[in-house]
Design a protein around this nucleic acid. Structure first.
Lengths: 232, 232
DNA sequence: ACCCAAATGAACAGGATACTGATATGTGAT
DNA sequence: ATCACATATCAGTATCCTGTTCATTTGGGT
């Protein structure tokens, strides 16, 4: 989920922005001056964007930004009154990512928010999705398509990999063979019950020490298969 | 050096921007319509920023941007006439990074340019400071366009170089042949699967000791290729 | 303990994918 | 114009993956 921090001393503006963003499906956090915003940002590392007024009591936007940049690269969009050109440029050089002049159109706000979030996640320093899933001593690195068991690389085929990934995304959950088929093959399962079973067996040969007594890839009779951390 | 592409059909504007940017120490490249700009961007991967008008003959800014995004994440700043609000927002959603309304102040232009470049280099894996990427005993010096394996210079062609650079920017990550094609050629992959494979082979002949048993440039069956340091 | 359904194990043939060598086309330099 | 080099295309081969079949074992309900 994309969480956005809104910071302005005028509560009406905060509330308005809050409504626009919530309508677009974003999660929001509110602050009413710079130091409050900083405190929230230090605590909550899941905030992916900051929208902040420049003129605020206690600690203004410029100062807050220069403090913020000491510990985070989170994108910041400044709100400015119409004619503060000097502030605009100053803010941009300090490391703000964008600014919006008040008053603004809702559509412009959401467009800039989308754009800023897109940049942040696309350039990929902090990606939204977890790239490595691990259960017990199995780890799955998705971009590298690499699976390790007890630190050793195991070579899985594409299908085996997809099945393992599916199970590992929700450890403990039982997947019926038909469900696995639909998710992995993207097709209706019809007379293919055994297909999944065969791949499960091959998977076990590769990731289990004793395939007959699986540590991880367990069967639930009449229901399906699941992945489970060996310790529980 | 930061190279910037300026693209507008009004030659006076291009010249004006050119002067501003040269005065700030930037390197510039000029184009007068979208397709010209695209051609330049495909050939010259060192362009770090694009400043482009929305309204242009031949191929307009919006179309050029959507083509561009298929093979590059280079930041784009749009130029717009004063009241084209609809275009503004459309452009931002497509992946533009900023826009400037005409007429604009020189100071505002340079501020936005600095800001866009800062974002691109700070957040990206493609940073200006990290000019040399190395994986295992392969090193790639981008400004010098020089590749060394175990200290010896190897002569790569442009295509080979671009492929290697793409893979080395994210070591371990698997790139599908089609993905490599779009990123390097800047075109849609259609019946070109073998093309990539052949270049991979050429690359291996040059950087691997035994191309049949590659140390670095590995294949992941049914997935694509990746570069990996032999030791990890 | 019995039976049936579900799960496992092994082997095989067809299919898909990647690699290789040869050839044709394009491009820039001399 | 010619040459050298880079690039694209093609066909053949090797390799690996996949889904099937069939026999066997395991588990649970009665």
């Amino acid at each position: 989920m994309n969480r956005i921090l809104i910071c302005d001393d005028e509560k009406d503006i905060v509330r308005a922005i809050d409504i626009y963003l919530k309508a677009e499906g974003y999660d929001t956090v509110k602050a009413y001056n710079g130091s409050e915003a900083l405190k929230l940002l230090k605590d909550d590392k899941d905030i992916r964007l900051v929208i902040m007024d420049i003129m605020m009591p206690e600690m203004d936007g410029i100062e807050a930004l220069s403090e913020l940049r000491k510990f985070s690269n989170v994108p910041v969009i400044f709100l400015t009154a119409k004619s503060e050109d000097a502030d605009k440029i100053l803010g941009l050089n300090l490391g703000a990512d964008d600014y919006i002049t008040k008053p603004f159109l809702p559509a412009e706000l959401t467009a800039r928010v989308r754009s800023a979030l897109r940049r942040y996640t696309m350039l990929g320093s902090i990606s939204t999705e977890k790239t490595v899933i691990s259960v017990g001593s199995i780890s799955l690195d998705d971009p590298a398509k690499e699976v390790r068991v007890d630190g050793d690389i195991v070579n899985l085929t594409k299908t085996e990999y997809e099945i393992l990934k599916l199970l590992m995304q929700e450890p403990g959950k039982v997947f019926a063979p038909g469900e696995i088929y639909t998710k992995v093959w993207g097709d209706d399962p019809y007379g293919t019950e055994n297909t999944v079973a065969v791949h499960i067996r091959r998977l076990r040969e590769k990731i289990e020490i004793d395939p007959a007594k699986p540590r991880y890839l367990k069967v639930v009779w009449g229901r399906g298969y699941k992945i489970e951390g060996g310790s529980r």
